[in-house]
Amino acid sequence: MPESTERGALTEAVYYILLALHSPMHGYGIMQYVKELSNDRVNLGPGTLYGAINTLIEKGWIKALSTPENSRKKEYEITLKGRETLLLEIERLEELLAHGNKIARRDA
């Protein structure tokens, strides 16, 4: 089943983390960015965020940046593979949105 799970929908948390990491950020930065972007709707808990970051690193969608010695906080950034995945997801969401508008909203 790995093929089909790769193509499945991303969770909201993963989607927003990938968006946030278009510029390098540490954990707290991601939380704040996602919170602002979603107008306070999406609050990532540290346990959830930590788990998601580790899974995304394993998948190679984001990478940890080598940290300067004076900074303890790890920073992360999206990879090429992560960008590709995100673009595929946006296409999928556009399809959902188009169908929703056409059928449920009865747009012309």
């Binding site: 969770t11 346990g47 959830t48």
Partner: peptide, 16 residues
């Protein structure tokens, strides 16, 4: 600092 929850989605809550 606002609301504080460790786990904010179903999959991480389920694992916990």
């Amino acid at each position: 600092d606002g609301p504080f929850h460790l786990f904010t989605d179903y999959s991480s809550q389920i694992k916990h």
